[in-house]
């Protein structure tokens, strides 16, 4: 009995802050601490705020492209790695391990100084090599592309780990049977392997999207002059806590919560034998 009470207290501790944000986002009053009745006016304010909407568009675009690249390349790598052993495999595993374990802040810093330095060499070279009739040479700079590249690096490692776990639990005899029945390797992949690993790939896609959408620290270094939603929220908090942030927070939580629940359901299928 005591243990159950303890569990309830901990769940309250975990969900109370989320509840407070949701509650205050519907607060008619300006000051969060005094509740003045129900209102959705802060949602209206956010939806008509061009800066917040710009940040939202950037975040969704970056998260979607990141998730797409990470799940495609990550799945490809997980499939490819099955055939490798020895030193190359150990090296690859080490890179994945480092990608996941190194603090996000170090990834942000490293990407920032490496890309800015590389651009410092590439831009003059590009300007010199650019044919004149094409007009001014484009200048490489930090922005959406560098952010997508950095997010994809981390989430791809995550997808590799998830898909590999699924591949390890997969029934190999089906693949052998398919080959024995003269299916082409491509045919086997589309009809046997992919349906089996698909829940893991989809879970990887959703986790990648959520990670990229929620990430603050890597974006803070790598996004250049672009503003993502977490960066917008962080700088709003710095200027003072407003009910508008609660409305953004509630919407962000709603998006990530629904994606995560789908991802969890997909990953849980792994535990049951495939039909």
């Amino acid at each position: 009995m005591g243990m159950r009470l303890y569990a309830i207290v901990i769940y309250l501790f975990l969900y109370l802050p989320i509840g407070i944000i949701v509650l205050f986002s519907f607060n008619a009053g300006r000051h969060a601490s005094d509740f003045h009745g129900f209102s959705v006016k802060w949602y209206g304010k956010v939806l008509s705020n061009p800066f917040a909407m710009d940040a939202l568009t950037t975040s969704v675009t970056v998260a979607f492209i990141t998730a797409l690249l990470a799940s495609v390349f990550g799945t490809m790598a997980a499939l490819g790695l099955q055939q490798f052993k020895g030193r190359f495999r150990a090296l690859f595993d080490a890179a994945i391990y480092i990608a996941i374990m190194i603090p996000g802040i170090v990834i942000g810093i490293a990407t920032l100084i490496a890309l800015v330095t590389a651009f410092g060499y590439l831009n003059p070279a590009l300007a010199a090599a650019w044919p004149e009739w094409l007009g001014d040479a484009p200048r490489l700079k930090m922005g959406r592309v560098s952010l997508i590249a950095a997010h994809t690096m981390f989430t791809m490692a995550l997808v590799i780990v998830i898909v590999r776990a699924r591949l390890a639990g997969m029934d190999r005899t089906l693949i052998e049977a398919s080959a024995d029945l003269y299916a082409t390797p491509m045919g086997t992949f589309w009809q046997v392997t992919l349906p089996q690993i698909f829940p893991a790939v989809l879970a990887g896609f959703l986790l990648s999207f959520t990670f990229s959408f929620d990430d603050f620290i890597i974006a803070f270094f790598v996004a250049g002059s672009e503003t993502t939603l977490p960066i917008y929220v962080f700088s709003s908090i710095r200027r003072g806590v407003t009910p508008e942030i609660n409305a953004i927070g509630t919407m962000v939580l709603a998006v990530s919560l629904s994606l995560l629940i789908v991802a969890q359901v997909m990953l849980r299928r792994r535990d049951r034998p495939a039909a």
Partner: peptide, 24 residues
């Protein structure tokens, strides 16, 4: 085929992880 499958991920990890950490 398997090498080709690994290529994008390997390049990505090299350019966006290993080289930047070396730069630091």
């Amino acid at each position: 085929t398997h090498r080709l499958l690994l290529l994008p991920a390997a390049l990505w990890l090299l350019v966006m992880l290993v080289l930047p950490l070396l730069v630091v």
